[in-house]
Design a protein around this nucleic acid. Sequence first.
DNA 1: TGAATAGTGTCTCTAAGACATTATTAT
DNA 2: ATAATAATGTCTTAGAGACACTATTCA
Lengths: 241, 241
Amino acid sequence: MSEDAFLAAYDPDAYGRLALTVDVVLMGIRDGQPAVLLLKRAEPPQAGLRALPGGFVGVEETLEAAAERVLCDKAGLSGFHLEQLYTFGAIGRDPRMRIVSVAYLALLPEAAFAAAQSNGAGLLPAVIEVPWAGEAGGPVAVRAPDESGSLRLAFDHADILALAILRLRGKLAYSGVGFALLPERFTLRQLQAVHEAILGTPLNKPAFRRRMLDRGWLEPTGEREAGTSFRPPELYRFRQP
Amino acid sequence: MSEDAFLAAYDPDAYGRLALTVDVVLMGIRDGQPAVLLLKRAEPPQAGLRALPGGFVGVEETLEAAAERVLCDKAGLSGFHLEQLYTFGAIGRDPRMRIVSVAYLALLPEAAFAAAQSNGAGLLPAVIEVPWAGEAGGPVAVRAPDESGSLRLAFDHADILALAILRLRGKLAYSGVGFALLPERFTLRQLQAVHEAILGTPLNKPAFRRRMLDRGWLEPTGEREAGTSFRPPELYRFRQP
DNA sequence: TGAATAGTGTCTCTAAGACATTATTAT
DNA sequence: ATAATAATGTCTTAGAGACACTATTCA
């Protein structure tokens, strides 16, 4: 049957219902480590587990608009880097009903990440532990800051988070995503710290500087960081090449 | 409102309906050029334009299963490389109703690509013209083989196709996707031709051979291509490292 | 002046491009 | 032998890692 014929004969009530949601990975750097903002589930199923903030997609709402709405409603934020990750549609991923979820990744600079906690409806930061050295990915552990045990994530949210880190790692080298985790003006040291946190490995300082400067991504502001001790580093700005 | 509260109060009939489909980019190499299998739309809207094969996602059906069903129903094929590309959810992308579509990319070796024409329900090959030299992407043109004018694609299918090529280009260097476009046994020349067709640029032979062999992806079969003239090239097999 | 951090110079090593050369087969 | 294509050797160049060095500021 052709798509048209199917569509012409399609009766939405003849089949069971299928819901579409977005889940947003709100990621930032906290104390030099990758971190994510999670809700603690109050109700069953999976009460007590941490979950990514999410919401249903309205019929007259773009997927991206739905993700922005979640970012605003749950974290009180707007205007940050947002990109689609992947769509999760396993049959039993939500025990209540068939829910297909489009996962989004939002990147927050340190200040916005902190602000989301005060604004937000119960969003709590969790440190992302990255036990794998940087290849094909694998399971990801999260823990509450200053605690040792790892938190369990609801539904398939651990998979979503693992994909977010993986995507971020992959895009870090050839795209400007790293800058979305920094304030408007930043030092090269801060930029390198962000890259090291995401990649989970130390980087070579001269090579890193060369790469970044040769890319043409960095615009020197001429200003230097105030209030620091010793030689104050130069502040740079991100310039889309 | 929390996700749970929303869900508890959620009445599927209180809102308008939103449909979920999959659209599949069936891609292969034809006469040394990237090509895609398209349906010619018989009915309005956009009758006469070419469209990607697609179908609705069943309530008890995985997204990937839906894509495989399309691959089987429309092209009579099964078991080929299939990966999710992106989810398209713009409001007006389909004029009939709100349809969110999860795009998939299927990669077919030359034989399967040809077979899909005879098996299939009106699938026709179209050559993908890649006018951009290899950077950030852009509009993609398709034309019928042996004709010069470019075909118009229905809905947002040109965007989907552009993303498919872009994804393929990006993954070619560091993943084994290229092998999905070749038969089980192939020569290094054929492999290089596939890479050149996808990237749209000639490659250096010794460097290409070194890269491929050093990767550990290639297993020599010890056999050589039969029926060719002059020195017959060695046949290799893809081995997941 | 010394401590601490910012920033650079330089050597080496690896990998890719360019180009030429050798190898193998059919006629 | 010659033609045609497969496969390799080698030189050069670009970029990354390692490491040591210089530069700048505060106490």
